[in-house]
Amino acid sequence: MKSRRKFLQHISAGVIPIAFGFTPESLLFNPDNSQNDKTLRVALMGLGSYANRVADAMKDSKRAKVVGVISGTPSKIPEWQKRFDIPDKNCYNYENFDAIKDNKDIDAVYIITPNAQHHNQCLRVAAAGKHVICEKPMAINAKEGREMVEACEKAGVKLLIGYRMHFEANTLEIVKMRNAGEFGDIKFFQGLSGFKIGDPNQWRLDPKLAGGGALMDIGIYAVNGTRYMVGEEPIWVTAQETKTDASKFREGVDETITFQLGFESGVVASCLSTYNMNNLDKFFLNGSKGFAEMQPSTGYGPIRSATHKGRLDMPHTTHQTTQMDEMAKIIFDNKVPIIPVDGKEGLKDIIILDAIYEAVRTGSKVDLNLT
């Protein structure tokens, strides 16, 4: 029996990919139904290198603005105040940020801290009644992810995950082509994600802060990319780990994992996650009528892409600028993104990460149920 994805692919060029959580309205029309120009006022939590990248990108945002900071290193705050004209009343530390509950100048908190801190910080932000934007991976395991989703639902606030690629032009064009049946029946996907990591003392190599190693940090791009490129949820996973430097990649920190995902339709995906190789960052999607490839596929850009019809290489805009404008529309205008970025979307990736680690540990195929 053909899968729902195959059935939908054969309907017409106006296919509706319900199977991956897309709605007809978002796919066929995806209107920019901005009801107003209300600005999303954001406090950044964690003032490291990526927070600086996000903040600088937001200078060009039309619907989002940095108005506050939350840091575990108070000495960083004055420089941020000067750069972004942030008043003292919008500055907090990790002990007192619950007080944002009474701050009417802050709409959302963007959590950009080590992975193991996301869960508790998300729960506290939700309890304060502020929308949560959380970097990926949203949590270090599915149990924590579920609790984050539940806490935000209970508080009546939105939980969005920092999936910047879900708004990237090349990515969206390939998804559109796939949904229109231009690649035919999808048969295979390859996702390669990794780099050679440097400083051995950084938090990414501390299992208590990172919750893992390369898979949590960079491999999640291949996991998430598999799902939005194939347009279907996997039903099983197998995985193998390779470690060449046990002193740098200690117990609980994976260096290199290869993993395979299977889908009900018969699609298979072969992926690599590593902290020990450069020149990766590649996606390849193959179908019965054509293909799409991206390299780089998830870097900060420009993204380079091509299909069997020729090069795409859509115009580049700073990913974080687009992400924050689109998230403002999701929060204020109830805009439905073509590829979801909500907490339930993030939870699916964490469930897969848990299953990959289990497959490594047991050497067995692990079944998945993401529906």
Rank of each mutant, 00 (worst) to 15 (best):
M327C: 10
S297V: 06
T322F: 05
T238Q: 14
S270M: 01
D245E: 11
Y275Q: 04
G290C: 01
T256N: 08
G252E: 09
T256E: 15
A292G: 15
T318V: 13
H308L: 02
T242H: 08
T238S: 15
A306D: 01
G299R: 05
K248T: 13
Y300N: 14
V267A: 07
T242Y: 10
G287E: 10
I257R: 12
K248G: 04
T244S: 06
Q260G: 11
Q323L: 15
T318A: 07
F263H: 13
F283M: 10
D325A: 04
N279Q: 10
A328C: 06
K289C: 04
M294Y: 04
I331Y: 03
S270K: 07
N279G: 03
L285K: 10
L285G: 06
A328E: 08
Q240W: 00
E241R: 14
G287Q: 10
V267S: 05
N278Y: 04
N276R: 10
A328K: 06
S305D: 05
N334T: 01
A292T: 08
D313T: 09
Q260W: 06
F332N: 13
N279V: 04
R311H: 08
F283T: 06
G301L: 09
G310M: 11
N276D: 15
K289P: 02
N278W: 00
F291I: 01
V253M: 14
V268N: 09
S297H: 04
T274P: 07
T258S: 15
E264D: 15
S288G: 02
F284S: 12
G290L: 02
P302E: 07
D313F: 12
E255K: 10
N286E: 15
Q320W: 12
G301W: 10
G262E: 09
G299D: 12
S247Q: 14
R311M: 12
S288P: 07
K282W: 08
S265N: 04
H319P: 02
I257Q: 11
A239L: 08
E326Y: 03
G290R: 03
N278E: 12
E251N: 13
K289T: 05
K243P: 01
K289F: 00
M324V: 03
K329C: 09
D245A: 03
D245P: 00
I330E: 13
K309Q: 15
A239H: 08
Q240L: 01
K289Y: 03
A292E: 09
L312N: 09
D333E: 10
D281M: 04
T317A: 11
F284M: 13
K243F: 02
E293K: 09
A239G: 08
V268C: 00
M294N: 02
G310R: 10
A306Y: 00
A239I: 06
D313V: 09
T238L: 07
I330K: 02
S247V: 14
D254S: 11
L272A: 00
Y300P: 05
V253T: 14
S247R: 07
N279F: 15
K329F: 00
K248M: 15
M324G: 01
T321P: 00
P315N: 03
S247E: 15
H316T: 03
G266T: 02
I257L: 13
T307A: 05
G262A: 12
S265W: 05
G266S: 03
E293F: 01
G262Y: 13
Q320F: 15
H316A: 14
F263E: 11
R250S: 13
F291Q: 04
E293G: 11
